[in-house]
Design a protein around this nucleic acid. Structure first.
Length: 892
RNA sequence: GGGCAGUUAGCUCAGUUGGUUAGAGCACUCGGUUCACAUCCGAGAGGUCAAGGGUUCGAGUCCCCUACUGCCCACCA
């Protein structure tokens, strides 16, 4: 058994330095708290962590993910559920390969020089380093995930899942190989899926080019294009069949400029007669629409590009030129030949590689695709019939819209880093062998002369299987049976399509069941200026630097408090400071309470029947807070939940209860000690807060426990203590009705002091008329004295109808009045002004209430409780108004 | 071209079944070396909840419309 670490009573600085954090993390780890037990009697809570890419270190976005997932996991664990949070990392295909290629470039190497095997070895080393760094960083964030189940997408298990899924889809006819227009990144030298292309508006040009008719020197047709270099790949000109201008030309041939090839004029619906000249050049190998036109008309495909986007042999004289150089050259040649009619500035959207920002070339190429529509249908149903809930709800529409318009997914990548496509081509008979285990021979002719497809799969293909591949699928494991479907998928809304949608499709396809019940989408982290963080902008915040500076809990506070799902978060210094200050406040409050315990007797039993009003009040407020926080958490409103814990602890417990309790502690003797309540509220609040701020709560909780008797020693750690349960029994409206005016009285005296600039060291007298509350407030005269620095405070039996003298200040409150004899003259003018303002305000409110209460509709249609409330309010406001007026009369 | 969000105090943002006088942090003003805390304490100022219309007894909250900002999706050469 691991012993709880020996706790030196350190100041917050020690906590900020990270020592406390590391101490506790190690403690939890040693205790094995992160690993849930499989208990068939209990329903588990499961989150599979979105695996960070092995491209370097974590950024604040990951810290947000980790924070939210840790909050949920810790909360459910404290509720006694077997809570599994399964961590992992993603090999990240292109993204990681790009990083390592850059590292190689610094050494003057490229991957082709190394060769596939050596390069992959290098990649594996790199991935292993990253995995290490990432795990370490997660630990610093306090992530309570089960490291014994950590997975990497290229691990044996997940890899077998990938192959199995591929083979099954292939056998069902849902994976096919074919020549289609794909997005080609010339820099990465690979095909990309549509999602991996970012469209940006580019200020370009529209070139109008004349194509002469073949049999008629005079006749011509003019086309408009943004990419004149693709003329080299034209195999037709198309016009709309309904376009009278060109009807006569359809079927004739034109001479392709520059290359002087004859190509036909065809009629096709796809052409918009209103755009450009109404005639379109058709480049089937380099444009998706043209590709389809070509299919319909049986046109030839002419590919004019090499993989690196230089011109190939089909470009004739332009062979070897870069695509942009070629464009210039062609434009200049067209001009020379008088075929360029005009150039117009034109803004259009151009695809760029998501990873390297290189301009994409649409290219006809033979690739592997997944036919998505059959997979989308069950995924649509799951979100429509309520089996899967997306938070915030608005993303359901976005999800459905994408699903309903889904297009086939190009999954092959011409990379080395990733899951190799499990397909072998027979060099003898040409048959494809598609198997999970490495093929040794052709499945048809048995030849050993087979070669595996050199390509790898899109990294998102393995991600799509993550929820089940991490739990053992395709095997029927105990883990899979127990933990699947998982509970929550928590991630950023930016990967809804990339990942979440595909996981739902593949989860349903592979297991027949949804992968998770709830999708929680968080917002993106932005910098102080509201800009998205990116390496290119150089505004990326390293979460480790941040937590070293402010403390992990402060950062978690900054990331989760006062935020809401799906909305972006601006991470500012002041947010971080607020978190740090809150941790510090807790530290100090706990220190105070621990010191108080030391000087009192050790019995912390609350004597419920003897409790004074303020004890009942704070216990009531605690109950309400627990009730509300629990409800909010069940509703995934973590930001609001934490804000309420913060406000309760700081604004009520520290500001009022502790301050009042101090007075009791100082006047030794007859009174009931506040210490049991102090301890109870603190201890409960720490548990309530623990999911959010795990380190400071553990440190303080452990410290507190050391001063308590054995019956408090329920668990070895706060993280496995039970989560507070709301007790409605402790809600005490009567106590609240007394403490509220008490607070109001104290505030009003403090206010008067400030207004009249009474020196802080000077005491003033106060007399209070509290009507029906007098008897309960009687025992609080000392409290009022100490907290408002007024002495003596006396309670009046009756109102001072007309307080005598001009140097008496009368404060009219809701149900009470405070009379303060002033040493010097009261500023009459100022007082009159203040009273008049109050009267006006009061009068306005009364008018509003009266109007409302005269309305028959209101009286009959509003709920009775609301009506009664308004009636009571009117009575009390009228009373206050009358008293205000009397005070004003004093001055007249 | 579609779709979605945001617009609340000087700044950053909360405010989820419509129900008192709309909140917090930071910033600001004034006052504080009281033994938990100056990473603090006390007091204060600051908002026609973007504009307009509607539904309702009652709207920051629901509906319509407008403006501005941002995002997503989309094969107009």
């Amino acid at each position: 058994m691991t012993q709880a670490p020996n706790i030196e009573y350190e100041m917050p600085k020690a906590y900020e330095s990270g020592k406390v954090e590391q101490k506790w993390y190690q403690f939890w780890l040693d205790k094995g708290y992160f690993k849930p037990e499989i208990d068939p009697e209990k329903k588990p809570f499961v989150i599979i962590m979105p695996p960070p890419n092995v491209t370097g270190e974590l950024h604040v976005g990951h810290a947000l993910t980790a924070t939210l997932e840790d909050i949920m996991t810790r909360w459910h664990r404290m509720k006694g559920e077997p809570a599994l949070w399964l961590p992992g990392v993603d090999h990240a295909g292109i993204a990681a390969q790009v990083v390592v290629e850059q590292l190689l470039a610094k050494e003057g190497l490229d991957r082709h020089q190394l060769g596939r095997e050596k390069f992959l070895e290098r990649m594996r080393q790199w991935a292993e380093e990253c995995r290490h760094t990432i795990a370490e960083q997660h630990q610093r964030l306090g992530a309570s995930c089960d490291w014994s189940r950590e997975r990497f997408t290229l691990d044996e298990g997940p890899s077998r899942a990938v192959r199995t899924a591929f083979v099954r889809l292939y056998q069902k006819g849902l994976i096919y190989r074919g020549e289609r227009i794909i997005n080609w990144c010339p820099r990465c030298a690979t095909a990309l899926s549509d999602l991996e292309v970012e469209h940006k508006d580019i200020q370009g040009h529209l070139y109008y080019v004349r194509y002469h008719l073949a049999e008629d020197d005079q006749g011509f047709i003019t086309v408009a294009t943004t990419r004149p270099e693709t003329i080299l790949g034209d195999t037709a000109v198309a016009v709309n069949p309904e376009d009278d201008r060109f009807k006569a030309m359809v079927g004739k041939k034109v001479i392709l400029p520059v290359v002087n090839r004859e190509i036909p004029i065809v009629a096709d619906e796809a052409v918009d007669p209103g755009f450009g000249t109404g005639a379109v050049k058709i480049t089937p190998a380099h444009d998706p629409v043209d590709f389809e036109v070509a299919q319909r008309h049986g046109l030839q495909l002419v590919n004019i590009l090499n993989p690196d986007a230089t011109m190939n042999e089909n470009a004739g004289p332009y062979l070897g030129l870069d695509r942009f150089a070629c464009r210039k050259a062609i434009v200049s040649d067209l001009e020379k030949e008088g075929l360029l009619i005009k150039i117009e500035p034109y803004s259009h959207s151009v695809g760029h590689c998501q990873r390297c920002q290189t301009m994409i070339e649409p290219l006809a190429s033979k690739q592997w695709f997944v036919n998505m529509s059959p997979l989308a249908k069950p995924a649509i149903d799951a979100a429509t019939d309520g089996r899967i809930t997306i938070i915030p709800e608005r993303f359901t529409k976005v999800y459905l819209n994408w699903m309903e318009n889904i297009r086939d997914w190009c999954i092959s990548r011409q990379l080395w880093w990733g899951h190799r496509i499990p397909v072998w081509y027979c060099q003898d008979c040409g048959e494809l062998t598609v198997t999970v285990d490495d093929a040794k021979a052709c499945s048809r002719c048995g030849s050993n002369n087979i070669e595996q497809d050199p390509d790898v799969l899109d990294t998102w293909f393995s991600s799509a299987l993550w929820t089940h591949s991490t739990l053992g699928w395709p095997d029927d494991t105990e883990e899979l049976r127990y933990f699947y479907p998982t509970s929550v998928m928590e991630t950023g809304y930016d990967i809804l399509f990339f990942w979440v949608a595909r996981m739902i499709m593949m989860g349903l396809e592979d297991t027949g069941d949804i992968p998770f019940h709830t999708v929680y989408l968080h917002g993106l982290i932005r910098d102080e200026r509201g800009e998205k963080m990116s390496k290119i902008r150089g505004n990326v915040l390293n979460p480790i630097d941040t937590l070293e500076r402010y403390g992990t809990d402060a950062m978690r506070f900054a990331l989760s408090t006062g935020t809401s799902p799906g909305n972006d978060i601006k991470l500012t210094v002041s947010r971080l400071e607020a978190g740090r200050n809150f941790a510090n406040k807790l530290w100090n409050a706990t220190r105070f309470i621990i010191r108080s315990i030391g000087s009192a007797d050790a019995d912390m039993k609350i004597q419920w029947h003897l409790l004074p009003v303020e004890d009942r009040w704070i216990l009531s407020r605690l109950s309400r807070t627990v009730l509300s926080v629990t409800g909010l958490m069940e509703d995934f409103q973590f930001g609001e939940a934490q804000r309420q814990i913060h406000d309760f602890l700081w604004g009520e417990f520290c500001d009022w209860y502790i301050e009042i309790a101090k007075i009791r502690l100082q006047s030794a003797g007859e009174a009931v000690s506040p210490i049991p309540v102090l301890v109870h509220v603190l201890e409960t609040s720490l548990r309530l807060l623990h999911p959010y701020m795990p380190f400071v709560t553990e440190e303080l909780w452990q410290n507190l426990k050391r001063h308590l008797s054995s019956e408090w020693q329920t668990t070895d750690s706060i993280m496995i203590a039970t989560y507070p349960e709301a007790s409605k029994a402790a809600i005490d409206p009567e106590a609240e009705r007394i403490v509220e005016p008490l607070v109001e009285i104290i505030r009003s005296i403090r206010n008067a002091r400030a207004q009249y600039k009474v020196e802080s060291t000077r005491w003033i007298e106060a007399q209070i008329y509290a009507g029906s509350l007098a008897s309960q407030l009687k025992q609080y005269t000392k409290t009022i004295e100490v907290l408002s620095r007024a002495k003596p405070v006396t309670l009046l039996d009756s109102r001072l109808e007309n307080a005598e003298g001009k140097n008496v200040l009368v404060l009219v409150l809701k149900d009470s009045e405070v009379v303060i004899p002033m040493e010097s003259m009261v500023d009459l003018a100022a007082e009159k002004k203040r009273l008049q303002a109050e009267i006006e305000q009061s009068q306005a409110e009364i008018t509003r209430l009266e109007v409302r209460l005269k309305s028959r509709d209101f009286l009959t249609k509003a709920p009775k409780a609301v009506v009664d409330k308004e009636k009571d309010k009117l009575v009390s406001r009228k009373d206050k108004l009358a008293r205000l007026k009397q005070q004003l009369n004093r001055f007249n």
